[in-house]
Design a protein around this nucleic acid. Structure first.
Lengths: 233, 233
DNA sequence: GCAAAAGTGTTACCTCTACACCCATGT
DNA sequence: ACATGGGTGTAGAGGTAACACTTTTGC
Protein backbone atom coordinates (compact mmCIF):
# COMPACT_ATOMS: atom_id res chain seq x y z
CA UNK A 1 0.00 0.00 0.00
CA UNK A 2 1.10 3.53 -0.73
CA UNK A 3 1.77 6.20 1.82
CA UNK A 4 -1.29 7.45 3.66
CA UNK A 5 -3.11 10.68 2.91
CA UNK A 6 -1.80 13.74 4.70
CA UNK A 7 -5.25 14.83 5.84
CA UNK A 8 -5.27 14.22 9.57
CA UNK A 9 -8.90 14.01 10.67
CA UNK A 10 -9.72 10.37 11.22
CA UNK A 11 -13.07 9.74 12.78
CA UNK A 12 -14.75 7.04 14.79
CA UNK A 13 -17.41 5.41 12.64
CA UNK A 14 -20.47 4.14 14.41
CA UNK A 15 -23.08 1.82 12.99
CA UNK A 16 -26.64 2.07 14.19
CA UNK A 17 -29.46 -0.27 13.27
CA UNK A 18 -33.11 0.62 13.21
CA UNK A 19 -34.80 -2.74 13.55
CA UNK A 20 -38.44 -2.97 12.60
CA UNK A 21 -40.49 -5.98 13.52
CA UNK A 22 -44.05 -7.15 13.16
CA UNK A 23 -45.91 -9.47 15.48
CA UNK A 24 -49.12 -9.79 13.53
CA UNK A 25 -50.74 -6.73 15.04
CA UNK A 26 -48.35 -3.86 15.66
CA UNK A 27 -45.26 -2.40 14.08
CA UNK A 28 -42.42 -2.85 16.56
CA UNK A 29 -39.01 -1.37 17.15
CA UNK A 30 -36.15 -3.23 18.79
CA UNK A 31 -34.27 -1.14 21.34
CA UNK A 32 -31.57 -1.78 23.87
CA UNK A 33 -30.84 -0.36 27.27
CA UNK A 34 -27.43 1.25 27.08
CA UNK A 35 -25.11 -0.29 29.63
CA UNK A 36 -22.22 2.16 29.54
CA UNK A 37 -21.72 5.86 30.00
CA UNK A 38 -22.71 8.37 28.86
CA UNK A 39 -26.49 8.00 28.94
CA UNK A 40 -26.17 4.64 30.69
CA UNK A 41 -29.60 3.18 31.34
CA UNK A 42 -31.31 5.11 28.57
CA UNK A 43 -32.84 3.46 25.51
CA UNK A 44 -30.81 3.33 22.36
CA UNK A 45 -30.67 1.79 18.91
CA UNK A 46 -28.55 -1.29 18.41
CA UNK A 47 -25.14 0.07 17.60
CA UNK A 48 -21.44 -0.48 17.50
CA UNK A 49 -18.28 0.72 15.84
CA UNK A 50 -16.91 -0.13 12.44
CA UNK A 51 -13.80 -2.28 12.43
CA UNK A 52 -10.77 -1.96 10.18
CA UNK A 53 -11.43 -5.29 8.53
CA UNK A 54 -15.05 -5.02 7.50
CA UNK A 55 -17.05 -2.88 5.12
CA UNK A 56 -20.20 -1.06 6.19
CA UNK A 57 -22.68 -3.82 5.36
CA UNK A 58 -20.54 -6.42 7.09
CA UNK A 59 -20.25 -4.18 10.11
CA UNK A 60 -23.99 -3.67 10.26
CA UNK A 61 -24.62 -7.40 10.05
CA UNK A 62 -22.04 -8.07 12.74
CA UNK A 63 -23.50 -5.49 15.10
CA UNK A 64 -26.96 -6.90 14.57
CA UNK A 65 -25.75 -10.43 15.12
CA UNK A 66 -23.71 -9.65 18.22
CA UNK A 67 -26.58 -7.89 19.93
CA UNK A 68 -29.50 -10.03 18.83
CA UNK A 69 -28.22 -13.28 17.38
CA UNK A 70 -30.08 -12.49 14.18
CA UNK A 71 -28.79 -13.54 10.78
CA UNK A 72 -30.02 -13.35 7.21
CA UNK A 73 -32.11 -10.30 7.75
CA UNK A 74 -33.18 -7.73 5.20
CA UNK A 75 -31.01 -4.67 5.68
CA UNK A 76 -30.60 -1.47 3.79
CA UNK A 77 -28.47 1.58 4.40
CA UNK A 78 -30.43 4.63 5.43
CA UNK A 79 -27.75 7.29 5.43
CA UNK A 80 -24.88 8.72 7.43
CA UNK A 81 -25.43 11.10 10.33
CA UNK A 82 -22.61 13.43 11.10
CA UNK A 83 -23.55 16.31 13.33
CA UNK A 84 -20.46 17.39 15.19
CA UNK A 85 -21.96 17.13 18.64
CA UNK A 86 -24.16 14.12 18.04
CA UNK A 87 -22.12 12.05 20.47
CA UNK A 88 -20.85 13.88 23.57
CA UNK A 89 -17.90 11.53 24.05
CA UNK A 90 -16.13 12.29 20.84
CA UNK A 91 -16.76 13.18 17.23
CA UNK A 92 -18.50 10.20 15.70
CA UNK A 93 -20.18 9.73 12.35
CA UNK A 94 -22.87 7.10 12.34
CA UNK A 95 -23.91 5.10 9.31
CA UNK A 96 -27.48 3.93 9.82
CA UNK A 97 -29.09 0.79 8.54
CA UNK A 98 -32.62 -0.32 8.85
CA UNK A 99 -33.60 -3.95 9.15
CA UNK A 100 -36.92 -5.72 8.75
CA UNK A 101 -37.57 -8.87 10.67
CA UNK A 102 -40.40 -11.23 11.34
CA UNK A 103 -40.54 -11.43 15.11
CA UNK A 104 -42.05 -14.88 15.53
CA UNK A 105 -39.68 -16.54 13.09
CA UNK A 106 -36.76 -15.26 15.11
CA UNK A 107 -38.10 -15.79 18.61
CA UNK A 108 -35.39 -18.25 19.57
CA UNK A 109 -32.38 -16.15 18.59
CA UNK A 110 -33.88 -13.11 20.22
CA UNK A 111 -34.82 -14.69 23.52
CA UNK A 112 -31.40 -16.32 23.74
CA UNK A 113 -29.59 -13.02 23.59
CA UNK A 114 -32.12 -11.09 25.67
CA UNK A 115 -30.38 -7.86 24.97
CA UNK A 116 -33.22 -6.07 23.32
CA UNK A 117 -36.78 -5.15 24.01
CA UNK A 118 -39.53 -4.81 21.42
CA UNK A 119 -41.51 -1.61 21.74
CA UNK A 120 -44.71 -0.92 19.94
CA UNK A 121 -43.54 1.71 17.52
CA UNK A 122 -46.17 4.09 18.77
CA UNK A 123 -44.99 3.72 22.36
CA UNK A 124 -41.28 4.02 21.77
CA UNK A 125 -39.40 5.88 24.46
CA UNK A 126 -37.14 8.86 24.04
CA UNK A 127 -33.79 7.74 22.68
CA UNK A 128 -30.22 8.88 23.20
CA UNK A 129 -28.25 11.23 20.96
CA UNK A 130 -29.82 11.71 17.54
CA UNK A 131 -31.46 8.30 17.51
CA UNK A 132 -34.97 9.75 17.52
CA UNK A 133 -34.19 11.52 14.29
CA UNK A 134 -32.76 8.35 12.81
CA UNK A 135 -35.85 6.37 13.71
CA UNK A 136 -38.17 8.96 12.24
CA UNK A 137 -36.21 9.01 9.03
CA UNK A 138 -36.20 5.24 8.89
CA UNK A 139 -39.97 5.14 9.26
CA UNK A 140 -40.31 7.63 6.41
CA UNK A 141 -38.03 5.53 4.29
CA UNK A 142 -39.88 2.34 5.14
CA UNK A 143 -43.20 3.92 4.25
CA UNK A 144 -41.79 5.37 1.08
CA UNK A 145 -40.34 2.12 -0.15
CA UNK A 146 -43.09 -0.18 1.02
CA UNK A 147 -45.67 1.89 -0.85
CA UNK A 148 -43.84 1.34 -4.10
CA UNK A 149 -42.03 -1.95 -3.78
CA UNK A 150 -43.03 -5.30 -2.31
CA UNK A 151 -40.96 -4.80 0.80
CA UNK A 152 -43.47 -5.76 3.45
CA UNK A 153 -43.05 -9.47 2.92
CA UNK A 154 -39.75 -9.27 4.79
CA UNK A 155 -41.66 -8.70 7.99
CA UNK A 156 -43.89 -11.74 7.64
CA UNK A 157 -43.40 -15.48 8.10
CA UNK A 158 -42.57 -17.54 5.02
CA UNK A 159 -46.21 -18.49 4.65
CA UNK A 160 -48.75 -15.81 5.31
CA UNK A 161 -52.29 -14.80 4.54
CA UNK A 162 -53.43 -11.70 2.73
CA UNK A 163 -55.25 -10.37 5.80
CA UNK A 164 -51.96 -10.64 7.71
CA UNK A 165 -50.20 -8.69 5.01
CA UNK A 166 -52.93 -6.09 5.15
CA UNK A 167 -52.57 -5.74 8.91
CA UNK A 168 -48.88 -5.16 8.39
CA UNK A 169 -49.47 -2.39 5.89
CA UNK A 170 -52.07 -0.86 8.17
CA UNK A 171 -49.51 -0.88 10.97
CA UNK A 172 -46.78 0.66 8.84
CA UNK A 173 -48.99 3.49 7.63
CA UNK A 174 -51.18 3.70 10.71
CA UNK A 175 -54.31 3.79 8.61
CA UNK A 176 -57.20 1.62 7.56
CA UNK A 177 -57.23 -0.07 4.16
CA UNK A 178 -60.11 -1.58 2.21
CA UNK A 179 -59.94 -5.37 2.39
CA UNK A 180 -61.17 -6.06 -1.13
CA UNK A 181 -59.08 -3.47 -2.95
CA UNK A 182 -55.96 -4.40 -1.02
CA UNK A 183 -56.37 -8.04 -1.83
CA UNK A 184 -56.80 -7.30 -5.52
CA UNK A 185 -53.72 -5.09 -5.64
CA UNK A 186 -51.53 -7.66 -3.97
CA UNK A 187 -52.77 -10.56 -6.06
CA UNK A 188 -52.28 -8.54 -9.22
CA UNK A 189 -48.55 -8.26 -8.56
CA UNK A 190 -48.30 -11.94 -9.40
CA UNK A 191 -45.77 -12.38 -6.61
CA UNK A 192 -47.84 -14.73 -4.49
CA UNK A 193 -48.11 -18.48 -4.80
CA UNK A 194 -51.12 -20.20 -3.31
CA UNK A 195 -49.74 -22.94 -1.09
CA UNK A 196 -53.08 -24.74 -0.97
CA UNK A 197 -52.89 -24.65 2.81
CA UNK A 198 -55.06 -22.73 5.20
CA UNK A 199 -54.21 -20.76 8.27
CA UNK A 200 -55.10 -22.90 11.29
CA UNK A 201 -54.76 -20.06 13.77
CA UNK A 202 -57.85 -18.22 12.70
CA UNK A 203 -60.80 -18.39 15.06
CA UNK A 204 -63.30 -18.18 12.25
CA UNK A 205 -62.92 -18.78 8.54
CA UNK A 206 -59.41 -19.96 7.75
CA UNK A 207 -57.53 -17.81 5.32
CA UNK A 208 -55.44 -19.10 2.44
CA UNK A 209 -51.72 -19.25 3.00
CA UNK A 210 -49.48 -17.80 0.33
CA UNK A 211 -45.78 -17.70 -0.13
CA UNK A 212 -43.55 -15.47 -2.20
CA UNK A 213 -42.55 -16.46 -5.68
CA UNK A 214 -38.88 -16.01 -4.82
CA UNK A 215 -37.73 -15.74 -8.41
CA UNK A 216 -40.28 -13.09 -9.36
CA UNK A 217 -39.69 -11.26 -6.10
CA UNK A 218 -36.00 -10.91 -6.86
CA UNK A 219 -36.49 -9.92 -10.46
CA UNK A 220 -39.41 -7.57 -10.00
CA UNK A 221 -38.44 -5.99 -6.71
CA UNK A 222 -37.78 -2.67 -8.36
CA UNK A 223 -41.02 -2.60 -10.30
CA UNK A 224 -43.27 0.22 -9.27
CA UNK A 225 -46.56 -0.48 -7.61
CA UNK A 226 -48.95 1.65 -5.73
CA UNK A 227 -49.90 -0.28 -2.66
CA UNK A 228 -50.86 2.78 -0.67
CA UNK A 229 -52.35 5.39 -2.92
CA UNK A 230 -54.01 7.87 -0.63
CA UNK A 231 -51.48 8.12 2.17
CA UNK A 232 -50.69 11.68 3.23
CA UNK A 233 -46.96 12.18 3.24
CA UNK B 1 -15.87 16.36 27.06
CA UNK B 2 -15.60 12.91 28.57
CA UNK B 3 -12.88 10.42 27.90
CA UNK B 4 -12.84 9.03 24.39
CA UNK B 5 -14.18 5.64 23.39
CA UNK B 6 -11.74 2.76 23.67
CA UNK B 7 -12.53 1.46 20.19
CA UNK B 8 -9.43 2.23 18.16
CA UNK B 9 -10.42 2.22 14.51
CA UNK B 10 -10.68 5.80 13.36
CA UNK B 11 -11.18 6.24 9.67
CA UNK B 12 -10.58 8.89 7.07
CA UNK B 13 -13.92 10.22 5.89
CA UNK B 14 -14.13 11.32 2.30
CA UNK B 15 -16.89 13.37 0.76
CA UNK B 16 -17.75 12.90 -2.88
CA UNK B 17 -20.19 14.98 -4.87
CA UNK B 18 -22.11 13.80 -7.89
CA UNK B 19 -22.97 17.03 -9.64
CA UNK B 20 -25.72 16.95 -12.21
CA UNK B 21 -26.26 19.83 -14.54
CA UNK B 22 -28.54 20.70 -17.41
CA UNK B 23 -27.76 22.97 -20.31
CA UNK B 24 -31.15 22.94 -21.99
CA UNK B 25 -30.49 19.83 -24.02
CA UNK B 26 -28.47 17.21 -22.23
CA UNK B 27 -28.04 15.91 -18.72
CA UNK B 28 -24.48 16.69 -17.67
CA UNK B 29 -22.06 15.50 -15.05
CA UNK B 30 -19.30 17.64 -13.60
CA UNK B 31 -16.00 15.81 -13.27
CA UNK B 32 -12.50 16.77 -12.36
CA UNK B 33 -9.10 15.56 -13.50
CA UNK B 34 -7.36 14.21 -10.44
CA UNK B 35 -4.07 16.04 -9.87
CA UNK B 36 -2.45 13.84 -7.27
CA UNK B 37 -1.52 10.21 -6.92
CA UNK B 38 -2.82 7.59 -7.07
CA UNK B 39 -4.76 7.65 -10.32
CA UNK B 40 -3.36 11.09 -11.13
CA UNK B 41 -4.75 12.31 -14.45
CA UNK B 42 -7.84 10.13 -14.35
CA UNK B 43 -11.36 11.52 -14.08
CA UNK B 44 -12.95 11.67 -10.70
CA UNK B 45 -15.90 13.07 -8.81
CA UNK B 46 -15.44 16.28 -6.88
CA UNK B 47 -14.22 15.15 -3.53
CA UNK B 48 -12.38 15.98 -0.36
CA UNK B 49 -12.04 14.96 3.24
CA UNK B 50 -14.24 15.76 6.18
CA UNK B 51 -12.78 18.15 8.73
CA UNK B 52 -13.06 17.94 12.50
CA UNK B 53 -15.06 21.14 12.70
CA UNK B 54 -17.82 20.54 10.17
CA UNK B 55 -20.73 18.17 9.85
CA UNK B 56 -21.35 16.17 6.69
CA UNK B 57 -23.57 18.70 4.93
CA UNK B 58 -21.18 21.52 5.70
CA UNK B 59 -18.32 19.46 4.42
CA UNK B 60 -20.12 18.66 1.22
CA UNK B 61 -20.92 22.31 0.64
CA UNK B 62 -17.33 23.31 1.35
CA UNK B 63 -15.91 20.72 -1.03
CA UNK B 64 -18.31 21.83 -3.73
CA UNK B 65 -17.47 25.46 -3.15
CA UNK B 66 -13.71 24.97 -3.05
CA UNK B 67 -13.65 23.09 -6.30
CA UNK B 68 -16.29 24.95 -8.28
CA UNK B 69 -17.08 28.22 -6.55
CA UNK B 70 -20.72 27.14 -6.39
CA UNK B 71 -22.99 28.15 -3.54
CA UNK B 72 -26.64 27.70 -2.67
CA UNK B 73 -27.03 24.53 -4.60
CA UNK B 74 -29.56 21.77 -4.03
CA UNK B 75 -27.76 18.91 -2.32
CA UNK B 76 -28.90 15.67 -0.84
CA UNK B 77 -27.02 12.84 0.77
CA UNK B 78 -26.96 9.69 -1.30
CA UNK B 79 -25.33 7.24 1.08
CA UNK B 80 -22.02 6.12 2.49
CA UNK B 81 -19.67 3.84 0.60
CA UNK B 82 -17.35 1.77 2.68
CA UNK B 83 -15.74 -1.08 0.82
CA UNK B 84 -12.45 -1.87 2.50
CA UNK B 85 -10.37 -1.57 -0.63
CA UNK B 86 -12.26 1.25 -2.30
CA UNK B 87 -9.28 3.57 -1.97
CA UNK B 88 -5.86 1.98 -2.48
CA UNK B 89 -4.06 4.55 -0.35
CA UNK B 90 -5.78 3.80 2.90
CA UNK B 91 -9.09 2.71 4.32
CA UNK B 92 -11.55 5.48 3.54
CA UNK B 93 -15.29 5.69 3.89
CA UNK B 94 -16.93 8.10 1.51
CA UNK B 95 -20.20 9.88 2.15
CA UNK B 96 -21.74 10.80 -1.17
CA UNK B 97 -23.92 13.75 -1.99
CA UNK B 98 -25.60 14.60 -5.20
CA UNK B 99 -26.14 18.14 -6.33
CA UNK B 100 -28.37 19.64 -8.99
CA UNK B 101 -27.34 22.80 -10.69
CA UNK B 102 -28.46 24.95 -13.53
CA UNK B 103 -25.37 25.32 -15.66
CA UNK B 104 -26.09 28.65 -17.30
CA UNK B 105 -27.04 30.38 -14.05
CA UNK B 106 -23.66 29.42 -12.62
CA UNK B 107 -21.47 30.02 -15.63
CA UNK B 108 -19.43 32.71 -13.95
CA UNK B 109 -18.49 30.80 -10.81
CA UNK B 110 -17.68 27.74 -12.82
CA UNK B 111 -15.52 29.38 -15.44
CA UNK B 112 -13.64 31.27 -12.74
CA UNK B 113 -12.56 28.11 -10.99
CA UNK B 114 -11.94 26.12 -14.18
CA UNK B 115 -11.42 22.97 -12.19
CA UNK B 116 -14.15 20.91 -13.67
CA UNK B 117 -15.37 19.74 -16.99
CA UNK B 118 -18.98 19.07 -17.92
CA UNK B 119 -19.52 15.75 -19.62
CA UNK B 120 -22.69 14.74 -21.32
CA UNK B 121 -23.91 12.10 -18.94
CA UNK B 122 -24.05 9.57 -21.73
CA UNK B 123 -20.41 10.20 -22.66
CA UNK B 124 -18.95 10.15 -19.19
CA UNK B 125 -15.53 8.56 -18.98
CA UNK B 126 -14.46 5.75 -16.71
CA UNK B 127 -13.91 7.06 -13.19
CA UNK B 128 -11.51 6.19 -10.41
CA UNK B 129 -12.17 3.91 -7.46
CA UNK B 130 -15.87 3.18 -6.94
CA UNK B 131 -17.00 6.46 -8.46
CA UNK B 132 -18.76 4.75 -11.36
CA UNK B 133 -20.91 2.90 -8.90
CA UNK B 134 -21.66 6.13 -7.05
CA UNK B 135 -22.70 7.89 -10.23
CA UNK B 136 -24.96 5.06 -11.29
CA UNK B 137 -26.63 5.02 -7.92
CA UNK B 138 -27.03 8.78 -8.00
CA UNK B 139 -28.73 8.62 -11.38
CA UNK B 140 -31.12 5.99 -10.05
CA UNK B 141 -31.85 8.14 -7.06
CA UNK B 142 -32.36 11.23 -9.21
CA UNK B 143 -34.75 9.35 -11.46
CA UNK B 144 -36.57 7.88 -8.52
CA UNK B 145 -37.09 11.16 -6.76
CA UNK B 146 -37.73 13.30 -9.81
CA UNK B 147 -40.51 10.96 -10.91
CA UNK B 148 -42.36 11.52 -7.66
CA UNK B 149 -41.37 14.96 -6.44
CA UNK B 150 -40.90 18.26 -8.21
CA UNK B 151 -37.14 18.04 -8.10
CA UNK B 152 -36.31 18.93 -11.66
CA UNK B 153 -36.83 22.64 -11.17
CA UNK B 154 -33.50 22.77 -9.39
CA UNK B 155 -31.76 22.20 -12.70
CA UNK B 156 -33.48 25.05 -14.51
CA UNK B 157 -33.13 28.83 -14.49
CA UNK B 158 -35.45 30.79 -12.24
CA UNK B 159 -37.77 31.46 -15.13
CA UNK B 160 -38.35 28.62 -17.52
CA UNK B 161 -40.83 27.32 -20.05
CA UNK B 162 -42.70 24.06 -19.90
CA UNK B 163 -40.98 22.73 -23.02
CA UNK B 164 -37.64 23.36 -21.32
CA UNK B 165 -38.80 21.43 -18.29
CA UNK B 166 -39.92 18.63 -20.54
CA UNK B 167 -36.55 18.48 -22.26
CA UNK B 168 -34.98 18.17 -18.85
CA UNK B 169 -37.17 15.24 -17.88
CA UNK B 170 -36.52 13.63 -21.22
CA UNK B 171 -32.79 13.97 -20.59
CA UNK B 172 -33.01 12.53 -17.08
CA UNK B 173 -34.99 9.48 -18.17
CA UNK B 174 -33.52 9.26 -21.66
CA UNK B 175 -36.96 8.85 -23.17
CA UNK B 176 -39.57 10.76 -25.12
CA UNK B 177 -42.58 12.26 -23.34
CA UNK B 178 -45.87 13.43 -24.76
CA UNK B 179 -45.95 17.24 -24.89
CA UNK B 180 -49.60 17.67 -24.03
CA UNK B 181 -49.80 15.19 -21.20
CA UNK B 182 -46.58 16.44 -19.66
CA UNK B 183 -47.80 20.00 -19.73
CA UNK B 184 -51.07 19.06 -18.07
CA UNK B 185 -49.32 17.09 -15.34
CA UNK B 186 -46.98 19.91 -14.51
CA UNK B 187 -49.64 22.59 -14.56
CA UNK B 188 -51.89 20.48 -12.35
CA UNK B 189 -49.30 20.52 -9.56
CA UNK B 190 -50.19 24.17 -9.07
CA UNK B 191 -46.52 24.92 -8.43
CA UNK B 192 -46.05 27.21 -11.43
CA UNK B 193 -46.74 30.89 -11.63
CA UNK B 194 -47.25 32.42 -15.04
CA UNK B 195 -44.85 35.36 -15.19
CA UNK B 196 -46.69 36.91 -18.12
CA UNK B 197 -43.40 37.00 -19.99
CA UNK B 198 -42.39 35.02 -23.03
CA UNK B 199 -39.20 33.25 -23.89
CA UNK B 200 -37.31 35.43 -26.36
CA UNK B 201 -34.85 32.73 -27.35
CA UNK B 202 -37.29 30.59 -29.24
CA UNK B 203 -36.97 30.69 -33.02
CA UNK B 204 -40.68 30.19 -33.60
CA UNK B 205 -43.59 30.69 -31.27
CA UNK B 206 -42.40 32.09 -27.96
CA UNK B 207 -43.25 29.93 -24.99
CA UNK B 208 -44.65 31.25 -21.73
CA UNK B 209 -42.20 31.71 -18.90
CA UNK B 210 -43.11 30.33 -15.53
CA UNK B 211 -41.50 30.49 -12.15
CA UNK B 212 -41.87 28.37 -9.08
CA UNK B 213 -44.37 29.29 -6.42
CA UNK B 214 -41.65 29.17 -3.76
CA UNK B 215 -44.05 28.82 -0.86
CA UNK B 216 -45.99 25.95 -2.39
CA UNK B 217 -42.79 24.32 -3.56
CA UNK B 218 -41.43 24.20 -0.05
CA UNK B 219 -44.66 23.03 1.52
CA UNK B 220 -45.64 20.49 -1.10
CA UNK B 221 -42.23 19.13 -2.00
CA UNK B 222 -43.03 15.78 -0.44
CA UNK B 223 -46.38 15.41 -2.14
CA UNK B 224 -46.52 12.48 -4.48
CA UNK B 225 -46.91 12.99 -8.16
CA UNK B 226 -46.38 10.75 -11.08
CA UNK B 227 -44.44 12.72 -13.61
CA UNK B 228 -43.02 9.69 -15.34
CA UNK B 229 -45.47 6.86 -15.34
CA UNK B 230 -44.22 4.41 -17.89
CA UNK B 231 -40.50 4.47 -17.21
CA UNK B 232 -38.94 1.01 -16.97
CA UNK B 233 -36.89 0.84 -13.80
C1' DG C 1 -78.34 -19.98 14.35
C1' DC C 2 -75.30 -16.34 14.97
C1' DA C 3 -71.15 -13.63 15.00
C1' DA C 4 -66.74 -12.86 13.05
C1' DA C 5 -63.45 -13.19 9.51
C1' DA C 6 -62.41 -14.14 4.61
C1' DG C 7 -63.28 -14.50 -0.32
C1' DT C 8 -65.27 -12.37 -4.58
C1' DG C 9 -68.06 -9.10 -7.94
C1' DT C 10 -69.86 -4.63 -9.58
C1' DT C 11 -70.31 0.11 -10.53
C1' DA C 12 -69.17 4.93 -10.70
C1' DC C 13 -65.56 7.87 -10.99
C1' DC C 14 -61.24 9.61 -12.15
C1' DT C 15 -56.81 9.58 -14.18
C1' DC C 16 -53.97 8.70 -17.84
C1' DT C 17 -52.93 8.05 -22.75
C1' DA C 18 -53.15 8.80 -27.34
C1' DC C 19 -54.41 11.51 -30.56
C1' DA C 20 -55.76 16.34 -33.74
C1' DC C 21 -56.28 20.88 -34.21
C1' DC C 22 -55.13 25.70 -33.83
C1' DC C 23 -51.92 29.65 -32.90
C1' DA C 24 -47.60 32.47 -33.07
C1' DT C 25 -43.27 33.49 -35.15
C1' DG C 26 -39.21 33.94 -38.43
C1' DT C 27 -37.81 33.17 -42.94
C1' DA D 1 -47.06 30.85 -47.23
C1' DC D 2 -44.88 27.55 -44.85
C1' DA D 3 -42.16 25.22 -41.52
C1' DT D 4 -41.44 24.89 -36.70
C1' DG D 5 -42.54 24.87 -32.16
C1' DG D 6 -46.10 25.88 -28.51
C1' DG D 7 -50.85 25.77 -26.42
C1' DT D 8 -55.25 23.35 -25.71
C1' DG D 9 -59.32 19.80 -26.18
C1' DT D 10 -61.32 15.16 -26.25
C1' DA D 11 -62.59 10.28 -26.38
C1' DG D 12 -61.35 5.74 -24.93
C1' DA D 13 -58.90 2.73 -21.88
C1' DG D 14 -57.48 1.47 -17.58
C1' DG D 15 -57.16 1.83 -12.75
C1' DT D 16 -59.11 3.05 -8.19
C1' DA D 17 -62.53 3.58 -4.53
C1' DA D 18 -66.68 2.49 -2.55
C1' DC D 19 -69.81 -0.51 -1.97
C1' DA D 20 -72.82 -5.80 -0.85
C1' DC D 21 -73.16 -10.39 -0.90
C1' DT D 22 -71.68 -15.12 0.11
C1' DT D 23 -68.83 -18.67 2.56
C1' DT D 24 -66.53 -20.79 6.39
C1' DT D 25 -65.87 -21.71 11.12
C1' DG D 26 -66.47 -21.84 16.39
C1' DC D 27 -69.56 -21.26 19.90
Amino acid sequence: MLQKYTHDTRILLAIDCIIFGFDGEELKLLLIKRNFDPEKGKWSLMGGFLNETEDLEEGAKRVLNELTGLENVYMEQLQAFGEITRDPVERTVSVCFFALINIHAHDSELSRSMNGYWFNFKDKPDLIFDHNKMVNMALSQLRYKAALHPLGFELLPEKFTIPQLQKLYEAIYDMHLDRRNFSRKIISTGLLIDTGEKNENSATKKAMLYQLDAEKYKNNFNDFHNFISDFKW
